[in-house]
C-alpha cells in the first residue's frame, strides 16, 4: 500500500526531514539532488534520529556518533554504525511523495536479517 508522506517542496535538495505516519516508525525523507529516498529514521546504532543529521551526497550521518548510511540501500557506510536501516519504496506524483507501507522485503536490512547469526569461530 502506498501512503501519502509529504509535499516534496518541504524537503529541499540536500536536506532531510522527519515524517511520522500512524502505524509506522519515524521516517526520514532525504532529497539527493531532486531524488527522494525514505528510510527508517532511528539509527541502528545509537538510537538517535537520522532526520537530525547531515545529508552528505548519498549518505545520511547520525548526529550522535557520526555513523553514516547510504540512503539508497540503507547500508551502514561508516562506523560505529554497522547494521543497515530499513529503506522504503517511494514515488513522486504531482509534487507529492508517497511511501510503501510496510517496507519492501528486499532491502539490505531484510537481507541482513535473513543472514545466519554471526558466528565467530573459536580462536583457540
Amino acid at each position: 500500500m502506498m501512503r501519502f508522506l509529504c509535499d516534496t517542496a518541504e524537503v529541499p535538495a540536500g536536506e532531510t526531514r522527519s515524517v511520522r505516519l500512524e502505524g509506522m516508525p519515524e521516517l526520514v525523507v532525504c532529497n539527493v539532488d531532486g531524488e527522494f529516498h525514505v528510510l527508517a529514521a532511528t539509527c541502528s546504532h545509537g538510537k538517535a534520529s537520522l532526520a537530525d543529521g547531515r545529508l552528505l551526497g548519498c549518505e545520511v550521518e547520525c548526529p550522535l556518533h557520526s555513523g553514516r548510511f547510504d540512503v539508497r540501500t540503507g547500508r551502514a557506510t561508516r562506523r560505529p554504525a554497522k547494521r543497515p536501516v530499513a529503506v522504503y519504496e517511494c514515488v513522486v506524483e504531482g509534487g507529492d511523495l508517497y511511501v510503501s507501507d510496510p517496507a519492501p522485503v528486499d532491502s539490505d536490512l531484510a537481507v541482513a536479517l535473513r543472514r545466519e547469526p554471526a558466528s565467530v569461530p573459536p580462536k583457540r
Binding site: 546504532h45 556518533h65 557520526s66 555513523g67 551502514a76 561508516r78 562506523r79 560505529p80 554504525a81 554497522k82 547494521r83 554471526a118 565467530v120
Partner: peptide
C-alpha cells in the same frame, strides 16, 4: 566511536553486529 579519526584505524579491530 572516537571521532573523527579513530574509526578509520584499520582492519584490526573486530566488532560484533552492533559495531
Amino acid at each position: 566511536m572516537l571521532a573523527p579519526l579513530h574509526r578509520f584505524l584499520g582492519t584490526a579491530f573486530a566488532s560484533n553486529d552492533d559495531g
